[in-house]
Simulated assay, not measured.
Amino acid sequence: MHSIDIGINKENRHDIADGLKRLLADSYTLYLQTHNFHWNVTGPQFRELHLMFEEHYTELAVAVDDIAERIRTLDVAAPGTYKAFAQLSSIDEVEGVPAANEMVERLTKGHEQVVKTCRDVLKVAQEADDESTAALVSDRMRVHEKTAWMLRATIA
């Protein structure tokens, strides 16, 4: 394979990729949590939450692929195991099946955490003049901010 020359030095590419790995792990963990809640939600808001969670995990499935491909574009291997994601993620695993309102609260916190992870990665990307990563991360941040708002609105 040829060496990579995209205007970002190796050290910066690795620093950016490290942040993206955390974002990937947070996003994948949130994807799994959302899918789990989609399957297991019950109660008076069943239909609304079941459909909303499906929209969210479907969007996250595309996002994890975009993030992993950006890591590969930087010539770094993307993590892809539960063990790696568990070590990298800032989102806590869920034990059992919480009540619907707790599901919404946990997902809200998860999306807010992803926003914070995005902010950290964005700083590193901007310092390295990596507009492609900055655009990806900025777009992800916007999606998660809006999703957290919508989740908060369901339990307000």
Rank of each mutant, 00 (worst) to 15 (best):
R119W: 11
I71R: 03
Q45R: 13
T154C: 01
N36R: 14
T29K: 08
L151W: 05
V104C: 03
S138F: 05
E59R: 06
M1L: 10
D139W: 00
I71F: 07
D15V: 01
E54M: 04
D15H: 13
E95C: 00
I155N: 04
E55W: 01
K83R: 14
D5T: 13
E69R: 08
W149A: 11
R72S: 02
D5C: 05
V76W: 07
A125C: 11
A86M: 11
R119C: 01
M103Q: 15
T154I: 05
K146M: 10
T29Y: 03
R22S: 11
V143M: 11
A61I: 01
E145G: 07
V137H: 03
S27Y: 01
M141L: 13
S3L: 14
I71Y: 06
D18K: 14
D129P: 00
E59M: 07
L136M: 08
R152M: 10
V114N: 02
A61D: 09
V94L: 05
G19H: 07
E11Q: 15
S132R: 10
Y31C: 00
Q126T: 13
E127M: 09
L74S: 08
D15K: 15
T147D: 05
Y82Q: 03
L23M: 11
L30R: 01
D18Q: 14
D5E: 15
A61K: 03
V114M: 08
Q33E: 07
T147E: 11
K146T: 13
M141T: 08
H14C: 09
V64E: 01
A134S: 15
H38I: 02
F46R: 02
M103K: 03
K83P: 00
L30T: 05
T42S: 13
R47V: 12
P79L: 06
L136Y: 03
L60G: 01
E112H: 11
D139I: 00
R47W: 12
I155E: 09
L122T: 04
D120G: 13
H111Y: 15
V94G: 08
V121W: 03
S89P: 04
V121Q: 09
R70W: 09
A99N: 09
D129K: 15
R70K: 09
V76I: 11
F53P: 01
F46S: 05
D66Q: 14
F53D: 04
M52R: 12
R140N: 04
M52L: 14
A78R: 04
S27F: 01
T58V: 07
L88M: 10
L23Q: 09
E145S: 06
N12I: 00
H2I: 13
T58G: 13
E54A: 07
S90N: 15
F37D: 03
H144N: 12
D66K: 14
T117G: 05
G96N: 09
Q45H: 12
V104G: 02
T58D: 12
G19F: 09
E112M: 12
A134F: 07
F53L: 06
K116V: 12
T108M: 10
R13Y: 07
V115T: 12
H50T: 06
A17C: 10
S90F: 04
N40H: 15
T34E: 04
T154L: 14
V76L: 01
E102M: 09
L88N: 06
H111D: 10
D92A: 14
G110C: 06
E112I: 00
D75H: 12
D15N: 15
M150T: 03
T81F: 04
H35T: 01
I6F: 12
E48V: 11
A148S: 14
L60I: 05
